[in-house]
Design a protein around this nucleic acid. Structure first.
Length: 421
DNA sequence: TCTGGGGTCCTAGGACCC
DNA sequence: TCTGGGGTCCTAGGACCC
């Protein structure tokens, strides 16, 4: 018996989150912007109908926003993260094996469940999530992850589906898959699409029927897996426990171009401090720190990008130690005379804190640093992020990203609880 | 004026070794 | 005239995803 999987995907997730706490937005076009209020990252159906594309810069569509009274929000990750958790907890009710694939999607194993009608089960899932969280979802059901993605695509678009589509029940897969453009298949990006179309492979069905040797040669084993999955042979297993993290990254575009080393160092100190917090949340320590800076590629100003990679003498999760290395690194790659747009920090070579290999010549008092970090995290957790911060991060920075239209932290901050009138 | 952030995985090619 | 070959490890960069 092949496995049976459901992909549950939240519809227009960020826009839907905004709606849950602001019902006046119902029926209106809503968009959510990326960090720094840059690009569109979520659109309600009404906004999609206006032709607002994913990823388009906000300033390109300002006219459209004004004319159609589009409701615009800065992204509010505290809210979306919390809503995501509620949705995922609800989904746990419906399957013993759930893989949380992203902030707004999860794969559920439906194999071996007592119910005989997957479509009806899908509708129950949909209804329950909507009732418990306010978030609308679509459910795609099939024998592999890639086909479940296809089924989900159909669940959203097919008028008869009403949000649930079971591809495994289809008697004529050719009829269905021939309607799916190949670029909509999971794992087929712009580069692969170009290649496939040049060889007459236009639809998901064409890809499914493609020659294996040709696929292996031109698309590698990743492409071959996609083809197998389209043939209902599952190659991508359900991952119930997330694999250990490979790296932790914090990077931001600046609200204003940064030119001085002093400002750049403030930004880098801030990002490193946040990265160190993330590191401690998952009980890992870093052995490698990378810091990078970039100018704005959309301008015709002189361009300069660079990365500095630092091998840390001892694995660490201590903020001030990481900040010290990051400041050192940024100083070596900073060049005066450029207008920088973005900088970031990546922590890599991650090891569990319990496995830290002490260096014979390590001069730090590790126990003291650990107690200090615990106190810091506790205070920031209880009193709000940023209550305590490092002096190196600066006070009142000009470079901070913009979030001019952020909604309130309805679910994670008592001061922002929605009012009932 | 204004163009996101955080990830994963694979592959090609160089360095090195015997 | 002759100037190997094959394995392994590492890294940079590409492709893709949400």
């Amino acid at each position: 018996m092949p496995p049976l999987l459901a992909l549950v995907d939240c519809n227009n997730f960020y826009a839907s989150c905004e709606r849950v706490f602001n019902p006046k937005l119902e029926g209106k076009p809503v968009i959510v912007l990326s960090n720094n209020d840059g690009c569109v990252v979520a659109r309600s159906n009404e906004a999609k109908a206006l032709g607002i594309a994913m990823g388009v810069p906000e300033f390109h569509i300002r006219d459209l926003i004004y004319r159609h009274k589009v409701q615009v929000f800065s992204s509010n990750y505290a809210l979306y993260g919390d809503m995501s958790q509620r949705v995922m907890q609800t989904l746990e009710q419906f399957s013993p094996a759930v893989e949380v694939y992203s902030i707004d999607e999860a794969f559920l194993s439906l194999s071996g469940l007592p119910q005989r009608n997957p479509t009806a089960y899908g509708h129950t899932i949909r209804k329950t999530v909507k009732q418990w969280t306010g978030i609308p979802v679509s459910v795609g059901i099939a024998e592999s992850k890639t086909l479940a993605k296809v089924a989900n695509y159909l669940a959203k678009r097919s008028p008869h589906a009403a949000g649930v589509f079971d591809l495994s029940a289809e008697t004529n897969p050719q009829r269905i898959l021939s309607q799916i453009p190949v670029e909509k298949v999971w794992g087929v990006g712009p580069g692969t699409t170009r290649l496939l179309k040049a060889h007459g492979i236009e639809t998901a069905w064409d890809l499914r029927e493609a020659d294996e040797h040709w696929i292996r040669k031109h698309l590698g084993i990743v492409g071959l897996r996609t083809v197998q999955e389209l043939r209902a042979r599952s190659c991508l297993p359900l991952e119930q426990c997330p694999p250990p993290k490979q790296g932790i990254m914090v990077s931001r575009s600046f609200g204003h171009p940064v030119e001085s080393l002093a400002e750049m160092q403030e930004a880098v100190a801030t990002y490193t401090s946040r990265a160190a917090e993330k590191l401690r949340e998952v009980h890992l320590a870093a052995t490698v720190l990378m810091v990078f800076l970039e100018t704005n590629p959309f301008t015709d100003e002189p361009q300069y990008n660079n990365v500095s990679t630092i091998e840390l003498p001892v694995a660490t999760d201590t903020s001030h130690e990481l900040i010290r290395h990051a400041l050192q690194g940024i100083k070596t790659i900073y060049r005066a005379g450029y207008r920088y747009k973005k900088a970031g920090v990546k922590l890599a070579g991650l090891v569990p804190v319990s496995h830290i290999q002490a260096d014979l010549f390590d001069s730090q008092d590790r126990g003291r640093a650990k107690r200090l970090m615990q106190a810091l995290d506790r205070i920031n957790d209880r009193m709000g992020a940023g209550t305590l911060q490092y002096a190196a991060a600066g006070l009142n920075p000009r470079w901070k990203a913009k979030f001019a239209r952020r909604s309130q932290a309805y679910t994670t901050n008592w001061k922002h609880l929605p009012q009932v009138q």
